[in-house]
Amino acid sequence: MKFLRHVVAAVACVYLAGCASGAQVANMVNKGEQQQFPQEIQENLALSSVTGGEETNPAWTSEISDKAFSEAIKQSLVEQGLFSDDGNYQLAVEMVEIEQPLFGLDMTVTTTVKYTLTDKETGKVLFDETVNAPYTATVGDAFAGVKRLQLANEGSGRENIKGLLELLSKLDINADQISMVK
């Protein structure tokens, strides 16, 4: 009888905890309102690289992979009319840090991502900016901790992409100088 209780308790723990799943592309895509961007980058921005992410180990914690974040950025750029496979402006993305809690009721994940935009023809760096984006998932969002962490990862990734789009909307490109509009 004691053994049976232990088995039932173990099965219940596995059921409540679940297996970790990586951040899903669809939940990181920024589908916010259409923004205004400089004419030069419209349908002229390509992703050159996305690095720094991690694959999820189902027995451990949810992570954001390079592939998922790359696709989420690409789809967000497409939504805004910026993406082109062979664009003159190359965007390199480096996930510098993904700060995650080990446990908790409310889980806040903060992504720190460095974005570097380069003019392919001249090699000139148009901007080299870092975006920090926190997002909190609560028990109301998901009861299971692994799911809450996944939601926090996805929300932080989406907020980070939103920060990138805000930077791109403030970009001022002209022949003499490149700056961020204040």
Score class of each variant (00 low, 15 high):
Asp66Lys: 11
Ser76Trp: 01
Pro38Glu: 02
Val96Cys: 04
Val14Ala: 12
Glu63His: 12
Ser65Asp: 14
Ile73Met: 04
Leu82Gln: 07
Val25Lys: 12
Ala72Ser: 07
Ala20Cys: 06
Thr112Asp: 09
Glu40Phe: 10
Thr56Tyr: 09
Asp66Glu: 15
Val96Trp: 01
Pro101Gln: 09
Thr110Glu: 11
Ser48Phe: 00
Glu54Ser: 13
Thr138Cys: 07
Asn44Thr: 09
Ile64Pro: 01
Glu55Leu: 15
Gln90Ser: 11
Gln75Val: 00
Gly53Arg: 05
Cys19Ala: 09
Lys114Cys: 03
Phe103Pro: 00
Ser76Gln: 04
Ser76Glu: 03
Thr56Phe: 10
Gln24Gly: 05
Asp86His: 02
Thr136Ser: 13
Cys13Pro: 00
Phe69Cys: 01
Ile73Thr: 09
Gln100Gly: 03
Val125His: 05
Ser21Asn: 12
Ala26His: 11
Gln36Ser: 13
Met107Asn: 12
Ala46Gln: 10
Ser65Pro: 12
Asn57Pro: 06
Ser70Asn: 15
Glu129Met: 07
Phe37Met: 08
Asp119Phe: 06
Gln24Leu: 09
Glu55Phe: 13
Glu71Trp: 00
Thr136Arg: 11
Ala12Thr: 06
Ser65Thr: 14
Ala17Asn: 08
Asp128Ser: 14
Glu71Val: 05
Ala59Ser: 06
Gly52Ile: 06
Asn57Phe: 06
Asn132Cys: 04
Glu40Asp: 13
Tyr115Cys: 02
Leu126Asn: 04
Val109Ser: 05
Val25Gly: 02
Ile98Asp: 03
Asn44Asp: 12
Pro38Trp: 01
Gln100Val: 14
Val125Ile: 15
Val11His: 07
Gly18Ser: 05
Asp85Leu: 12
Gln34Trp: 00
Asp106Tyr: 03
Phe103Val: 11
Tyr115Glu: 02
Phe103Glu: 08
Ala12Gly: 08
Ala92Asp: 14
Gly81Met: 04
Tyr135Asn: 10
Glu71Tyr: 00
Leu105Tyr: 12
Leu91Phe: 10
Leu47Ile: 15
